[in-house]
């Protein structure tokens, strides 16, 4: 079996945003677990890298955070999507789909009509 894939450069932000959009406000640990689950455990996420990524998104105004209480009654910082974050997510998702679609055309065999 192949090794678990590392997170590609730049895709982590997109995954975070999508995860928060789907799940609603969520703490860092939750986001990390969710990303792993969604990838079908194909991704090996170094949880430590998640927090600088979250901070970057927060500094850029895509997400906002506040302290709250987790499902297990534990104090945790919850992140939620801001309006600009939502816009960014849609934009980047679209770009990503386009990129993958183009790549797919290169990689899949084409039917030559001639």
């Amino acid at each position: 079996m192949r090794d678990k894939t590392d997170v590609w450069q730049g895709t982590l932000a997109l995954m975070i945003l999508k995860t928060i959009e789907t799940m609603g406000p969520l703490h860092g640990y939750g986001i990390a677990r969710r990303i792993e689950q969604t990838s079908g455990n194909l991704i090996s996420l170094n949880y430590g890298t998640l927090y600088p990524a979250l901070l970057k998104l927060e500094q850029e105004g895509s997400i906002a955070s506040e302290w709250g209480v987790s499902e297990n009654n534990r104090k945790a910082k919850f992140y939620r999507l801001t309006r600009s974050g939502r816009k960014q997510l849609h934009q980047e998702a679209q770009d990503w789909e386009q990129t993958t679609a183009i790549l797919a055309r290169f990689l899949s065999p084409t039917e030559d009509p001639a």
Partner: peptide
């Protein structure tokens, strides 16, 4: 302090899981 708290809460949640 906040950074320390957040990391600590992360570790604890993970430990509980």
């Amino acid at each position: 302090q906040e950074i320390a708290d957040e990391i600590e809460s992360h570790v604890q949640m993970h430990t509980e899981d």
